[in-house]
Computed example of a mutant assay.
Amino acid sequence: MPRNIDAATARALLQTRDDLRRSGCTERDIERLVRDRVVRRVRNGRYVSADAWNGLWNEGRHIVEVVATHLNSDAPGPVFWGPSAAVLHGLPLYRLAPKQVHTAIIGARHGRTCAGVVWHNVEVVSSDIVEIDGIRCTSLDRTVLDLGRATAAGVAVSAADAALRSEAVSGHVQDADAAAAWAGRMSARAERSHGRGIRQARRIIEFADGRAQLPGESVSRLQLARLGFVRPQLQVHVVGPSGEDYWLDFGFPRAQCFGEFDGAGKYLDGEVRGERTAEEVVMAEKTREDAVRGVTGWRTVRWGSSHILSTDAFGATLAAFGIRPPG
């Protein structure tokens, strides 16, 4: 099963108490399965197998919680908001594991928290409510803006990059006109908005770049900006010795280095590796790196998730290879 799932897959994973009874479980059996962590109670009367749950990333776990909340609600169901809307749209939640499901309580005076659900008193116009697999949530644009206002910069920029990528990027190439249209639309929306967090949201929208393929690349770019790299080259195209097309995450001309964010999933996650073994992935990366160095004369510097946790640590990693901000 993939570690990232959509609402339909989440719905299929969930079992009701009646489902478990029909499989032969008694009430005592169900309680024992929960106690022994063979199944996990997601919401009242909604269960998922522990094996399935443990195989999911944070986004997948949260969409299971969102779908369970929807199924336990009266029609038409709540409008999911913020991180809970993000997972319905397939946006990443960089290092964020929501502890509660987030919904917009339309027309209420005060927000509240009940049974693992936070009801936010936020204004959501009807044009900003969409349905995904029959589940209501805020629109993609509104969700990106809300994440920009209410989450850490790494979460917000990863989501904004992913939203822009879905609209303006094909392969590794970003359509400049489509990207400009997205930025203009989102900036105009942010300018019309006010209140807590809106300044960060405006900065995130201005900073977004759909060429980031992974959240780790988005956060790497954020850390580079904090270090003083104003506009690092992104998705640098190199033609190999036999005409191969290679794309490098970052280019640092002054140091004559390419930079690559290397997530562990490339080597360890079967969903990412596809049919290849970890050894085959390593060899392919070595072949690629040798070809790029042979054509350009540039080295390739790699870093992973642990290196981008802090700006200082990332700066020290780059400096060890002679990569320093200009000026």
Score class of each variant (00 low, 15 high):
E275C: 13
E285P: 05
G270M: 14
E244Y: 01
G274D: 14
R276E: 14
E244N: 06
K286W: 12
E244L: 11
D262Y: 03
E244T: 03
A284Q: 14
T277Y: 12
R288S: 04
G274W: 14
R288N: 07
K266P: 08
V282L: 15
V282F: 14
E271K: 00
G263H: 02
D269E: 09
D290Q: 12
A255T: 07
C257P: 05
D262K: 06
F258Q: 07
P253Q: 00
D269K: 02
V281Q: 10
V281G: 08
V272N: 07
E244K: 07
G251P: 06
K266Y: 04
E285C: 12
E280M: 09
R276A: 14
V272E: 01
W247V: 01
G251L: 01
A278Q: 13
Y267T: 07
F252Q: 00
D249M: 02
L248H: 05
R254I: 12
E260D: 10
F258Y: 14
K286H: 14
K286V: 15
D245P: 01
R273Q: 13
Y246E: 11
L268Q: 09
E289V: 03
W247K: 06
R276G: 11
E271Y: 05
G274N: 14
V272W: 03
E279K: 13
E244C: 08
W247A: 01
A284F: 06
G259F: 07
D290S: 13
E244M: 04
G270W: 14
E271M: 07
A284E: 13
R254H: 05
D249Y: 01
G259P: 05
D290C: 11
A255N: 08
G265L: 00
E280I: 08
A278D: 10
G265K: 01
V272F: 02
L248V: 09
A264H: 04
R273K: 11
G251Q: 01
K286F: 02
T277V: 01
A278R: 12
R288V: 08
E280L: 08
E260T: 02
E260A: 08
L268S: 09
V281N: 04
K266N: 08
V281L: 11
F252L: 00
E279H: 10
T277P: 00
G265P: 01
A255Y: 02
A264V: 04
D249N: 06
Q256M: 15
R273Y: 10
R288Q: 11
Q256R: 15
D262V: 03
G270R: 15
R273N: 10
E275W: 14
D245F: 05
E244F: 08
E271A: 02
P253S: 02
A255C: 07
G274E: 11
G270H: 15
K286I: 15
A255Q: 03
D249L: 09
W247T: 09
D262T: 04
R276N: 09
E271C: 04
D269M: 09
W247I: 06
T287M: 15
P253W: 09
E244R: 10
E289S: 13
K286Q: 13
E271F: 03
D290L: 10
A278I: 05
R288A: 13
D249K: 06
D290N: 11
G274K: 12
D249Q: 02
F261G: 00
F250N: 00
D262I: 09
E280K: 09
G263S: 06
E244Q: 13
